[in-house]
Design a protein around this nucleic acid. Structure first.
Length: 673
RNA sequence: GCUGCUGUAGCUCAGCUGGUAGAGCACGUCCUUGGUAAGGACGAGGUCAAGGGUUCAAGUCCCUUCAGCAGCUCCA
């Protein structure tokens, strides 16, 4: 007798030594039996036909796109089907590892012959055949030694390795295989499962890309071919997903950056080096102005430091020995007079320069905290394969600052820097960010300084996070070499996560540079440093911002805030007057003096994501008005130019995220998106 | 850096098995002076990423370099 508890609390008794989830589903109803593809047995995802031998809580998993368990089964099983298809077509292929991932699945394969995207249709056709055959996924288990022997006989080192790793986790676990069909007859793979009941449950799939990937993610290991795919229960879901990918691509900052004239990259200047065009320059300038105001309010002092520094500075700081592989080569030179050799480095960080400013004068505890801020440009020689638009570059400007304080001041200063990061996110409407507490990996030797101070620093950061009340997760091994940090992460349109703002606590560099201040007791003390950058880098932040707003910046950031569109050339003089008045008020306004009809002008202005379109014709000219339209296709109708200027000015000065000019009839012509 | 892919007009792209370049948009001129998401006509624009090779002949085939894309690895 087995007692099964269902999710609604109902209890069903089965008078048999074992029962399967399939049988449970059948006992509830034919519809559920048909839709069932797996089960959660006491919370563990399991095969639909796995025998349940004792009392358990069972939830039937059905084929639904919003159920992560269902998608796991689907993607995992599709990975198997793809692997079978590939081994059919490439008998030499050695399978390594094929898991489901967030957006689909992949399989890592060792194969000398490259698989190309043009080979995908053949592979997909073979997969479709396997799906059509609707073969059951059949699990069977083998004792450890027999299984290892079997795998070794197949000559696939990866599968042997996988099995051994599984055993090292749990030496008593039996080793399981899954055949698509009949074991011994059909294709099979070492796998812990679970899977769909049969290949026929795979609705729609598509191979996405192929790329190299290292075995166990270790660059010194064999490089395998990784084939990515996506899978859904229905064609409609697959199509919707493909459509969504295409939509995301339109938000890509590299695409929008070109369309909107924000930035460019020239091979003649160098890859990974951003050239800010005039319109991108405005966005950056507005962001910097915003930050400067906040810095002034919080008692920061602006400083300026050069782009290069003597190599000895970075030897002292520790940057050079730790990271010399990712720096531009040094500049070596001979002094003309003395003939002495000296060597300079493009600065990879601003902190050593700021430290020199701190130590240029004797400091008293009464002076602290000292907060030195600079939009400091730094250079790092990233690997060529890492470069990506504005988000991963070789030269970038940090909205950097270094706070030098007494140990007692650390917490208050940290709290205020975290507040500043949160203010930036709030002002720009970022809600979908993550906070990562980046800690050292005690097993690694890359971290400098005294472990006791590290413990103290890490404890302080944990405390701050708790006090401020942000959700966060800890990441071992993500700390800077000189201290732990709080990193704020945001995803780009293709789901890659980027670090933006950062707050770092540092007991090491003050030690290395022997920084001091005189305490109330008239003896020297060592200050503590906080490194912080709310935007992180202007380049990366702007790139993410472009994607966040899909190019439609809030008015205060928009390169062009309003564009005047005249109905015909007759009204150009009035239109020019309107532009003049806007410009005089400090609003960035342009005139479209082209020979197009009003519809074409509107279309072009909206493509440029200009917040306000001001149509002027005879009626407006007579009444000193403008007919206001937003880029969202809201026709606000005519209003006195004076009123428009008042409203847009308030919207800009308050850095509002939403249009403030909207009147009573705001949405009357709005077209649903 | 590694694997695979890509590079043709300012932009997006076409150009089959080699026979010396094409579209749409943008741009310019002209016609039109038009009231809310593309008015019309004509025109100008290309060292086909760069360099080398094969060939009677290369945008097309091969090699090298540069740059970009996806992933891996890395990331102060």
């Amino acid at each position: 007798m087995i007692k099964i508890t269902l999710p609604n609390g109902a209890i069903k008794d089965f008078n048999a030594p074992t029962v399967t989830a399939a049988q449970i589903a059948a006992s509830i109803g034919p519809r559920l039996a048909k839709d069932a593809i797996g089960a959660l047995v006491d919370g563990v995802l399991s095969d639909l036909n796995a025998p349940i031998t004792k009392d358990a809580a069972v939830a039937i998993v059905t084929a639904k796109a919003d159920d992560t368990n269902a998608m796991y089964l689907l993607r995992h099983s599709t990975a198997h089907v793809m692997a079978e298809a590939i081994t059919q077509l490439y008998p030499e292929a050695k399978l390594a590892y094929g898991p489901p991932v967030d957006t689909g699945f992949y399989y890592d394969i060792e194969l000398t012959e490259p698989i190309r995207e043009e080979d995908f249709p053949r592979i997909e056709a073979a997969m479709a055949q396997i799906v059509t055959e609707n073969r059951p996924f059949t699990r069977y288990e083998m004792p450890t030694s027999a299984a290892l022997q079997k795998l070794a006989a197949q000559g696939n080192p990866y599968k042997v390795d996988n099995a051994q790793r599984a055993l090292s986790q749990d030496p008593n676990a039996p080793i399981s295989f899954y055949a698509t069909g009949e074991p011994g007859k059909n294709w099979e793979d070492l796998c812990r499962g679970p899977h769909l009941p049969a290949t026929g449950r795979i609705g729609a799939f598509k191979l996405a890309s192929v790329a190299g990937a290292y075995w166990h993610g270790d660059a010194s290991q064999q490089q395998l071919q990784r084939v990515y795919g996506m899978a859904f229960f229905s064609k409609a879901e697959l199509d919707a997903h493909i459509h969504q990918l295409a939509e995301a691509k339109k938000r890509d900052h590299r695409v929008l950056g070109k369309q909107l004239g924000l930035f460019t990259i020239s091979p003649l200047v160098g890859s990974g080096l951003i050239l800010w065009m005039p319109k991108g320059g405005i966005v950056r300038q507005e962001l910097e102005n915003f930050m400067r105001i906040e810095l002034a309010r919080r008692g920061y002092n602006a400083v300026y430091t050069p782009h290069i520094g003597n190599i000895n500075l970075y030897k002292t700081s520790g940057h050079y020995p730790y990271y010399k592989d990712s720096q531009f080569p040094t500049i070596k030179m001979k002094e003309r007079d003395s003939g002495d050799e000296s060597e300079y480095l493009l600065k990879p960080m601003n902190c050593p320069h700021h430290i020199q400013i701190y130590s240029a004068e004797p400091r008293s505890y009464r002076d602290l905290p000292i907060r030195l801020a600079e939009f400091g440009t730094v250079y790092r020689f990233e690997q060529s394969g890492e470069l990506s638009g504005m988000t991963r570059v070789r030269g970038f400007t940090q909205d950097d600052a270094h706070l030098f304080c007494t140990p007692e001041q650390v917490e208050a200063e940290l709290r205020s820097t975290v507040d500043m990061v949160l203010l930036v996110f709030k002002t720009l409407g970022f809600t979908d960010y993550q906070c990562r507490v980046s800690l050292r990996d005690p097993a690694s030797d890359k971290y400098a300084g005294n472990p006791a101070l590290w413990d103290q620093a890490e404890a302080t950061l944990r405390k701050i996070v708790k006090e401020v009340g942000i959700t966060s997760q800890e990441a071992i091994g993500e700390a800077a070499f000189y201290g732990p940090k709080l990193d704020f992460l945001v995803k780009d349109v293709i789901g890659r996560q980027w670090q933006l703002g950062t707050v770092q606590l540092d007991y090491v560099l003050p030690e290395r540079f022997a920084l001091e201040y005189t305490g109330a007791d008239n003896t020297p003390h060592r200050p503590v440093m906080i490194h912080r950058a709310p935007f992180g880098s202007m380049e990366r932040f702007t790139g993410i911002l472009i994607e966040h707003f899909a190019g439609a910046f809030p008015t205060w950031l928009s390169p062009v805030q309003a564009i005047v569109l005249s109905i015909s050339e007759k009204f150009l003089p009035y239109a020019r007057g309107v532009v003049q008045q806007l410009t005089t008020t400090g609003i960035r306004a342009e005139l479209d003096a082209g020979n197009d009809k009003i519809g074409a002008k509107i279309r072009r202005a909206r493509e440029q994501k200009i917040p306000y379109l001001l149509v002027v014709g005879a009626k407006e000219q007579e009444t000193s008005a403008v007919a206001v339209r937003t880029r969202k296709d809201q026709d606000l109708g005519p209003m006195p130019l004076k009123t428009f200027i008042e409203k847009i000015s308030a919207e800009i000065s308050d850095r509002l995220a939403e249009p403030a000019v909207i009147g009573p009839d705001a949405n009357r012509h709005e077209v649903p998106a």
